[in-house]
């Protein structure tokens, strides 16, 4: 028996919004430690890794490890039927070929349940090695989304250059060149507005804008985003999900032809 309950459907809606542009379907691996999802996008350029800890749920029970392959378009249709403040419960029997998603209004006067067929997905798991990153940047998630959106107008690629002075995002194309520099913040009143750079050595890497923009669909989940970079390894873009876990996106760098 698997049962996981969250106090607010809005969190699940935001999580789905954060992955459904990259993935058509995905397997949710459930165990007593929580729910894990790891999947590459269709073109195998990026990888999504979602971790939801069991202690972050209002109720969590998973008697046997369970892999639930879900069509994310179908899941989105079901989640559209929830109000943001509804409780949401996901339930499945061991070895089941369906999952039930139930919504309850705060006053318990409306209860709806949706049974969704599960899929057998031929999923590959990738082992992600520990990396000592050359640069780790923490910055407001909204600012990162804004920069990615703005620079995508100028080029398919964005160059991220990180030094101890700050981080520079550049794009160059037919229109010309765009550069956006962010300096590390001195003192800020609010932690969520800070730009913090931890640098071992400077790094310059090039990434495809369209993937960065897809990652920023996670912005509503978190006030801050963390970018971890190292020469010739994938960029890690991480959004914390408060008290529940995190979503990490890995993006392969572009190299010169």
């Amino acid at each position: 028996m698997f049962e996981a309950r969250l106090g607010q459907a809005t969190i699940l809606k935001k999580i789905l919004d954060a992955i459904k542009d990259l993935l058509n379907e995905a397997t949710f691996d459930c165990s007593d430690s929580g729910i894990q999802l790891q999947a590459m996008d269709n073109s195998h350029v990026s990888l999504v890794s979602l971790t939801l800890r069991s202690d972050g749920f209002d109720k969590f029970r998973c008697d046997r490890n369970l892999s639930m392959g879900m069509n994310l378009g179908s899941m989105a249709k079901i989640l559209k039927c929830a109000n943001n403040e509804d409780n949401v419960t996901m339930k499945a029997q061991d070895n089941a070929d369906t999952v039930t998603i139930m919504f309850e209004s705060a006053n318990q006067e409306k209860v709806s349940d949706y049974e969704m067929k599960l899929m057998n997905l031929d999923q590959e798991h990738l082992g992600i090695p520990e990396t000592d990153f050359s640069c780790v940047v923490r910055m407001p998630a909204m600012e990162f989304a804004r920069i990615c959106r703005d620079l995508a107008q100028f080029s398919e690629s964005v160059v991220i250059c990180c030094t101890k002075e700050g981080v520079k995002f550049s794009a160059s194309g037919d229109v010309g060149t765009a550069n956006i520099k962010l300096a590390q913040t001195g003192s800020v009143d609010k932690e969520e507005e800070a730009v913090i750079i931890e640098m071992q050595e400077p790094v310059t890497l090039t990434f495809a804008c369209r993937y960065l923009n897809a990652f920023t669909k996670a912005t509503p989940l978190s006030t801050q985003v963390q970018l971890s970079m190292c020469a010739d390894v994938p960029l890690v873009v991480e959004y914390a999900i408060k008290d529940l876990g995190h979503i990490r996106y890995y993006l392969a760098p572009k190299i010169e032809d």
Partner: peptide, 12 residues
């Protein structure tokens, strides 16, 4: 040139 993400990580 865009590299694939699976060229960086080992298949388990």
């Amino acid at each position: 040139m865009q590299r694939g993400i699976d060229t960086f990580f080992k298949r388990l």
